[in-house]
Amino acid sequence: MIQDVIEAKLTEAFRPDYLQVLNESYMHNVPKGSESHFKVVIASKFFEGKRLIEQHRAVNQVLAEELEECVHALSIHTYTPEQWSQQQEAPDSPMCFGGRLKD
């Protein structure tokens, strides 16, 4: 499963205090069971002192192969452990406006 690969790569690269990888493909106009749209919520010491764009680029770099081959969309929410301890919730993703879901 792509979700498992994403989780393993992010865990190895960032040793996160918190990691959640959600398959949000069901929210989009794709066949049932697809693994093409993901949301990543990650808190890691790696992100301390880095600008948001640097944090997101680091995640994209780790997942470059998946983004090139099979992942169509990736929503990234990065936090330092301190930020996460204060927030502990990422924003909800909106539903896709691409039409009805396929069966």
Rank of each mutant, 00 (worst) to 15 (best):
M1Y: 10
I2E: 13
Q3A: 12
Q3D: 06
D4Y: 04
D4W: 03
D4S: 14
D4H: 13
V5Q: 14
I6K: 02
I6L: 13
A8V: 01
A8Q: 14
K9I: 00
E12P: 00
P16N: 06
D17R: 11
D17F: 02
Y18D: 01
L19N: 09
V21E: 04
N23I: 03
N29C: 14
V30H: 10
V30C: 04
K32Q: 12
S34N: 05
H37P: 01
F38T: 07
F38H: 06
V40Q: 04
V41R: 00
V41T: 10
V41P: 00
I42H: 03
K45M: 01
F46R: 08
F47K: 02
E48N: 07
R51I: 07
R51N: 11
R51S: 05
I53Q: 09
Q55R: 15
H56T: 02
R57I: 00
A58N: 01
A58K: 01
N60A: 00
N60R: 05
N60S: 07
V62T: 11
A64F: 00
E65I: 00
E65T: 07
E65V: 01
E66N: 02
V71I: 15
V71H: 11
A73S: 14
S75K: 01
H77F: 15
Y79S: 09
Y79H: 10
T80Y: 01
P81E: 09
E82N: 10
Q83K: 12
W84M: 07
W84I: 05
Q86E: 14
Q87N: 14
Q87K: 15
Q88M: 15
A90R: 12
P91C: 06
S93G: 10
P94V: 03
C96G: 07
G98T: 10
G99K: 13
R100H: 13
K102C: 04
D103W: 02
D103H: 10
